[in-house]
Computed example of a mutant assay.
Amino acid sequence: MPADSDSPAPVSPPAPAYATRTIALVGLMGAGKSTVGRRLAHRLGRTFYDSDQEIEKAAGLSVADIFSLHGEADFRRGEQQVLKRLLAEEPHVLATGGGAYLNEETRTLLREKAVTIWLNADLETLWRRVQKKSTRPLLRRDDAKSVLANLFVEREPIYSQADLVVDSKDGPHGTTVNAILKALKTWTPQ
């Protein structure tokens, strides 16, 4: 049967507001940015980048080696260059390093090019998670838990400036991914 010429053409649903933006996960080490980011990218059909891995590729050194050989300031400069390069690419999912969002220029760039999501986890959860890896340069000290606690207090006000906040709790990573997808539906550009 021929279509009625007076019938309206089917309408595609509008693209979500975040469709043209990178989704950047920010937060402390141990918040789950890399693990959750990979799963989120898969669900969205996007490429995933971990800024620390990209820095290591560019430098030919591990993050820990960059810190020990060149210091944190040089690492942060390289981190900013890598983030600028990544944010110039097609929209993807990006796990930023724990300190990346602290830099005001980087925060501004992320606000312009990405939807920022703070993966917020409580201190005990973070501590449990970071103990599994010995490669965290800022925690290579006897008082590592107090260093993490201080970073938590210092960085929380800055992370809270992210576009969205999603709790990163223990449990299936899919739960956090679902919470991000739900939060993204509410996001509108400012």
Rank of each mutant, 00 (worst) to 15 (best):
S68V: 11
L25N: 09
D74K: 14
L139C: 02
D167R: 07
D52V: 13
S168R: 07
D170A: 15
D163R: 03
A114V: 08
G32W: 01
A88M: 03
S134N: 04
K182S: 05
M1E: 10
L102W: 00
R85V: 13
G30N: 03
L164D: 06
V177M: 07
V115S: 03
A183E: 06
L109Q: 11
A15H: 08
K33T: 02
P10C: 09
T106V: 13
N150S: 15
R141G: 09
L109G: 03
P10Q: 01
A58T: 13
E72W: 06
F75Q: 10
P10K: 04
A15S: 12
R38M: 04
R38V: 04
D167K: 09
I117L: 09
G27K: 09
F152W: 15
P2L: 07
K133H: 05
M1Y: 12
G174E: 13
E124Q: 15
V93F: 06
V82N: 13
V11E: 08
E104Y: 02
N150H: 14
T176K: 02
L164P: 06
L181N: 05
N103W: 04
K185S: 08
K182W: 04
K113S: 09
P16K: 02
H70T: 12
D50L: 10
K132P: 04
R43D: 00
K182R: 08
R155Y: 07
T125K: 10
V115P: 02
R111L: 01
P2N: 08
A64T: 15
G60L: 13
N120D: 13
P8E: 07
D122T: 05
W187I: 02
G78H: 06
P14A: 15
T176D: 03
A41F: 00
R140K: 14
A41V: 01
D65K: 10
L94I: 08
D52M: 10
V165T: 15
A73M: 14
T135D: 10
P157I: 14
S34G: 08
E89A: 12
T176E: 02
F75P: 08
V147A: 03
L61D: 08
A100Q: 03
R128T: 06
R46L: 15
A9T: 05
T106H: 00
T116L: 01
G97N: 03
T108C: 05
E154G: 10
Y159H: 11
L148Q: 00
K33R: 02
L139F: 09
G78S: 05
Y18H: 14
S168T: 12
L138H: 04
A121G: 12
S146F: 07
D142L: 04
Y18G: 06
S160A: 15
A95P: 02
N150W: 06
D167H: 11
A183Q: 03
L119S: 15
T116F: 06
G60Q: 11
L139P: 01
G30C: 00
E89K: 09
L184G: 01
D122R: 14
F152A: 14
